[in-house]
């Protein structure tokens, strides 16, 4: 393999889920995809790296700040959904069930990894509140850190007189009970509601 190929393989390997073999396969595919593909990809990578930044308001990734979600006049400004990371926001958006605003923390509280409130966009969140917001939905993950982060935010928000809610966890819609993992099933039973 040439030096330039090795360099590209080395860079690709730093991406999640890409090992040595996959990286080599990608480089081969790149070389076989025609003379225009490589430069086009390089331009696209450069553009993303140069232009995309976290939104100064919500932390979503964007080229404009505020981002198109924050700027969209059709979004419901009384609702604010707090998520850990951008992919969580994208997942909620893909559901088309939510028309409110977002706030991306940038992770969850994790003392063992040295992540405290100062490492997350907590002050940015408080600065946005209450404003027009009536309800804050805490959509952090159902892990130990995600739960602790939700409890932390609940306390920080308690003085603002807002409605603070937590997303439910449990059985996937349309899911067969017997295929649901044990932890989820246990949580779903503990969080049962009266009909």
């Amino acid at each position: 393999m040439s030096e330039s190929m090795k360099r590209l393989v080395g860079l690709l390997r730093q991406l999640p889920g890409v090992g040595e073999k996959t990286a080599q396969r990608l480089v081969m595919a790149l070389l076989n995809a025609g003379p225009d593909f490589g430069p086009a990809l390089a331009d696209a990578v450069r553009e993303v790296a140069e232009r995309v930044r976290p939104c100064g308001v919500c932390g979503n990734l964007t080229e404009e700040s505020p981002c198109e979600l924050c700027a969209d006049p059709r979004r419901e400004r009384g609702l604010l959904c707090v998520v850990e990371r951008v992919p969580d926001l994208l997942a909620i958006e893909a559901s088309h069930e939510y028309r409110g605003l977002y706030h991306v923390l940038g992770g969850s509280l994790s003392p063992l990894d040295g992540v405290g409130p100062d490492e997350l966009r907590v002050e940015g969140l408080l600065a946005r509140l209450p404003g027009e917001v009536r309800e804050v939905i805490l959509a952090t993950s159902a892990s130990v850190e995600g739960e602790a982060t939700a409890l932390y935010l609940k306390r920080r928000l308690s003085a603002l007189g807002l409605k603070v809610t937590r997303i439910a966890s449990g059985i996937p819609v349309g899911g067969e009970l017997e295929y649901v993992d044990r932890g989820t099933l246990g949580r779903a039973l503990a969080g049962r509601r009266e009909l």
């Binding site: 994790s110 063992l112 739960e147 932390y152």
Partner: peptide, 29 residues
């Protein structure tokens, strides 16, 4: 999960650098 929460709380206690609400969150968990 319990072991993780315990180690997280102990780490906060040892470093001594935390917001009261942060320690409370891990205590509640």
């Amino acid at each position: 999960d319990f072991s993780l929460a315990l180690r997280a709380r102990n780490r906060l206690l040892r470093t001594g650098r935390f917001q009261p609400e942060e320690l409370s969150a891990f205590s509640e968990t």
